[in-house]
């Protein structure tokens, strides 16, 4: 959580400084607990994870090294996306980290497909899939179709819905008409729970239980976390459309603060420990960024400009 926060703050400052990051920066501020609580339940190499926009913390918890994030944001050739795709659109599918496309909802069926294939091949064992979406993304046909299909196939998939009350500027009142998104679970014939997503302990408990149910053959599990997006939609956005009443409400608690207080209150960590940890994390992030900054940018003359894996089928460029 802390690493995620510090890394994202760094990305935000690189963006604001200009030049280094071209394109948007999308942060998961306030969603680290909910995201990480899912990530830690997953086993890299065994489970399939389809994270979304605000899952930096979940990706770290799943085992993605932060250098992959930095390389993707800076477009380095050394990164998993080789400068071809950027920012949050990254992954290593063969390690079970699916690379999201922008089109919301599209990943759910893809994660389901991975699980389906494993079941066919007899290799599913106790592995599960997991994917995230926001309140807004639940309005897509892709989300509905994917979830319905996963339910019909009774696949072991966790569908984590971060209800941060806004989709870009659009409040939930313009997004859905049910009382709570979790009410939809019954309609799909799956289990669903809600959790206070600002509270790490509750999130951990909820995801631990849900992943256990999925691993035990309980089919798709929906978890709806209630929180507030504590950043703009992207760093270009000041989110001035979020009223102060919401910003001061209980869902606007900073999950990182809540978790730190929790650890301190239990005597697990002192303020000095936390400070030290903070500094260590900052050093790690700074070192990673400075390392990546020295790496070469993609060279168009070294690119093969081929979108097919079957090189013999790639057409010559029939043009001037």
């Amino acid at each position: 959580m802390l690493l995620s926060r510090v890394l994202e703050e760094k990305l935000g400052s690189l963006y604001r400084a200009g030049g280094r990051i071209v394109g948007g920066v999308y942060l998961g501020k306030g969603q680290e607990a909910f995201s990480a609580a899912l990530g830690v339940q997953l086993r890299k190499g065994k489970d399939i994870y389809g994270p979304l926009i605000r899952d930096q913390a979940g990706r770290i918890a799943f085992g993605e090294p932060i250098i992959d994030t930095v390389r993707t944001y800076l477009g380095a050739v050394t990164g998993p996306m080789r400068g071809r795709d950027g920012n949050i659109h990254r992954g290593r599918p063969k390690e079970g980290h699916m690379a999201m496309i922008s089109h919301l909802g599209s990943l759910l069926s893809v994660v389901a497909g991975g699980l389906f294939a494993r079941r066919l091949a007899g290799t599913l064992a106790d592995s599960i899939g997991a994917t995230s979406i926001g309140d807004g993304g639940t309005s897509t046909g892709a989300f509905h179709e994917g979830l319905n299909m996963a339910a019909v196939e009774k696949l072991p998939i966790i569908v984590s819905i971060a209800n941060n009350q806004y989709a870009y500027s659009t409040p939930n009142t313009r997004q859905y008409a049910c009382e709570n998104l979790v009410d939809r679970a019954a309609g799909y014939g799956i289990e669903g729970v809600t959790v206070d997503a600002t509270d790490l302990a509750s999130c951990l408990k909820a995801f631990r239980a849900a992943t256990a149910r999925a691993r035990a053959g309980g089919g798709p599990q929906m978890i709806v976390g209630t929180l507030l997006r504590l950043a703009g939609h992207g760093e270009h956005d000041d989110a001035s459309y979020i009223p102060d009443t919401k910003r001061q409400g209980p869902s606007a608690r900073d999950c990182l603060q809540v978790a730190e207080d929790f650890a301190r209150d239990r005597g697990w960590m002192s303020s000095a420990d936390l400070r030290e940890l903070n500094e260590e994390v900052r050093r790690n992030v700074d070192q990673t960024v400075s390392k990546v900054s020295k790496e070469p940018a993609p060279d168009p003359f070294k690119e093969n400009w081929q979108a097919l894996s079957c090189a013999e089928l790639v057409e010559g460029q029939h043009e001037a």
Binding site: G83, R84, E319
Partner: peptide, 26 residues
């Protein structure tokens, strides 16, 4: 003659993007 983008998805990094699409010099 015809001139279009290259036959790959549109790349993220500006270096690649500039070479992907036609420009004044191409």
């Amino acid at each position: 003659m015809r001139l279009n983008s290259k036959d790959t998805p549109i790349p993220y990094h500006p270096n690649l993007w500039k070479s992907h699409r036609p420009t004044t010099s191409t």
